[in-house]
């Protein structure tokens, strides 16, 4: 059966629809509850994992290195759950990293702007002008966050298979529409799409194994072959390649590791000025 990822401009609302859709479909619903297990596993504060999903890196908040690390942990855990199938996933940014997989139905739920503004301003009902300004600011922030984290604009409707506005559609109708859409043949799993998801899950596991030592690491998997990309100075190339091959090769599913070292031009420039 298809997997459903549900994102929303309002996390509580997205979660509510996700729970209801999962119940109607007889699926599991996975949301931010998994972050506590992720935090335990990697020995990081759970609050920082929540922050990584909500905030961009900043000098006064989470560093860029930790931000990437926390999101990698969340991605790995989420993909492991999605592999089990029969899942509705919300609040874990899966719509941004589970892309190109035909049996993953990506839904965006847009809250009623007035209600959303009330939610953001802690229950107060601001004026129309204030609502509009508040929501625009929030949308700009989410666009920046998603572009920085995954190079995808989460406010772009083309990211999704379906966008449902709760200004015009009732929550009950939204749930029913989601349930009906999962029945479409085009969203059913097939050998190709299952392999793509499995490849993504393996790549995310390898990335987590490498990210502490190589914060900029990128990993792609194709069956039992993985391609790892990182930056290094010329003199570090050999050592980094050896370490990456060793760490990635420890996964039993990995038969071949290709390491692509890109020139670290910023560090090279910094060294040349010393």
């Amino acid at each position: 059966m298809p997997v459903v990822t549900l994102s929303s401009d309002s996390h509580p609302l997205g979660r509510e629809i996700a729970v209801r859709a999962a119940t109607a479909l007889g699926y599991d619903c996975v949301d931010r509850e998994i972050l506590s297990a992720v935090a335990d596993r990697h020995d990081v504060p759970e609050t920082d994992l929540h922050k990584a999903l909500e905030e961009s890196p900043s000098p006064f908040g989470i560093s860029s290195k930790n931000h990437a690390r926390y999101l990698a942990y969340i991605e790995e855990a989420t993909l492991a759950v999605l592999l089990k199938d029969h899942v509705v996933c919300s609040g874990l940014a899966a719509h941004l990293y589970v892309r190109g997989i035909s049996h993953v139905l990506k839904i965006r739920i847009l809250a009623d702007p007035q209600k959303l503004a009330g939610e953001i301003s802690s229950g107060r009902t601001p004026s129309f002008e204030k609502v509009s300004a508040l929501l625009k600011r929030r949308e700009r922030f989410r666009r920046r966050w998603s572009l920085a984290a995954y190079r995808v604009d989460e406010t772009d409707p083309s990211v999704y298979d379906m966008v449902i506005s709760l200004t015009r559609i009732d929550p009950d109708e939204a749930v029913q529409t989601i349930v009906e859409t999962t029945g479409y043949r085009k969203f059913q799993p097939m050998t190709y799409s299952l392999k793509c998801l499995k490849d993504k899950a393996l790549a995310s596991r390898v990335r987590v194994a490498l990210i502490d030592r190589f914060p900029d690491v990128r990993v792609q998997a194709d069956g039992s072959s993985v391609v790892v990309q990182t930056k290094a100075l010329e003199r570090e190339k050999q050592k980094k390649t050896e370490v990456i091959k060793k760490l990635a090769g420890e996964f039993p599913e990995v038969a071949a590791v290709e390491v692509q070292i890109l020139p670290d031009i910023f560090r090279k420039a910094a060294e040349s000025f010393r």
């Binding site: 190109g100 035909s102 479409y184 043949r185 085009k186 059913q188 097939m190």
Partner: peptide, 11 residues
């Protein structure tokens, strides 16, 4: 293979 072709084929 692409997501679009895969979905089209299944549809």
């Amino acid at each position: 293979a692409t997501l679009e072709i895969a979905r089209q084929a299944l549809a």
